[in-house]
Write a protein that binds this DNA or RNA. Sequence first.
DNA 1: AAAGGCACCAACCGCGCGCCA
DNA 2: TTGGCGCGCGGTTGGTGCCTT
Length: 258
Amino acid sequence: MVRAPCCEKMGLKKGPWAPEEDQILTSYIQKHGHGNWRALPKQAGLLRCGKSCRLRWINYLKPDIKRGNFTSEEEETIIKLHEMLGNRWSAIAAKLPGRTDNEIKNVWHTNLKKRLLNSTNSRRVTKPKIRRSDSNSSIVTQSEPANLNFREMDSTSACTTSSDFSSVTVGDSKNIKCEDIESLETMPVIDESFWSEPAIDETQSMTISDQMPFQYPFTKYEETLEQSHAYDSNFDDGMDFWYDIFTRTADSTELPEF
DNA sequence: AAAGGCACCAACCGCGCGCCA
DNA sequence: TTGGCGCGCGGTTGGTGCCTT
């Protein structure tokens, strides 16, 4: 298959957008929407390729874009989500309303990565704090996850595959909150048994409200997800599933429905 | 004050995927 | 089934401003 060129290079402008171009693009999209990005610049009278227009709109001009610095809460959320999702910026951005993948990517590379590496360098090995706080009652429960191995992380692995959910707040129904940045110092490393064995004694009666996700009867969810083809065939659905669990209210005693 | 280095961020590039004819 | 097309994503680059020497 021969790929068509991204855009006609001849005569098309590149580089920073002028305010007039922004104005043209914004007013055109507000009037007509953006059905076809490739055709849009021609119809709008812009000397840009569709790709450039799309990027400008998505990353800068869209009305719901949140401008300004990231809050510490947003930054912590990014760190947590990055632990879960890796460099899947669009997936991370989907959980941060008003923030774009490009913006998050930039913040990660320029700020958060360094901060995490610095904290990793001074990392000490401690037992993880399993924190679940209710935004109204400030109830905090702690417990120790089973079948998890903890080791000191080196700087290269700290930001890639570890899955420390220990400080994820479940009390906010919209956003993951990470109230205890200190707990970033303890990165649990998941071993094989985590994925294949129940993380706890399944005979125990358990609810969402008193167990963290990875203490949840994992095999039960594995089975369910496999049945729904989400676990093997659709990583995004799987992550959304876990994200749903993380963000359930602390009061919930219901198991997630499928 | 000037030059070099660094950090930040907007924008570009190339690839892969899904849709459709 | 195949190939073309459009879109979205992640990695990378380049411009600009600030800081340090």
